[in-house]
Amino acid sequence: MSELRDDVKYAKSHEWVKVEGDIAVIGLTDYAQDQMGDLVFAEVVPAGTTVAVEDSIGSVESVKMASDVYAPVAGEVVEANDTLEDAPEQINETPYDTWLVKIRLSDPAELDQLLDKEGYAALIAEES
């Protein structure tokens, strides 16, 4: 069973979002990393990039799969986690403590579109 947390919101494309003031911290859910298997590569867009909802903010690769990571919220990327390039396995090991990018929210109302823990649990139950 995948780990779920109360203190984050979830996107249907399997990112988690943690709000710190006007900053949204984005990572991949435990379910997502488990489905991918051992990650061998991760890449995120550089700080300064402006993204809309569902724009690609990076990609992750395991031996057998590759997937884009999508922006759950719009805004400017203010920080990108560049330690991932050398150590993508952090995502497998501590998915909720490994962030990919931090986005300055351009429209905090978008957060309401995201799923809560129960909603996401229902989504992954359906998918698996």
Partner: peptide, 13 residues
């Protein structure tokens, strides 16, 4: 290796 770039995994991407 580094096959995730390739067609059998990424298809149109």
């Amino acid at each position: 290796t580094i096959q995730a770039r390739e067609q059998h995994i990424r298809r149109e991407k």
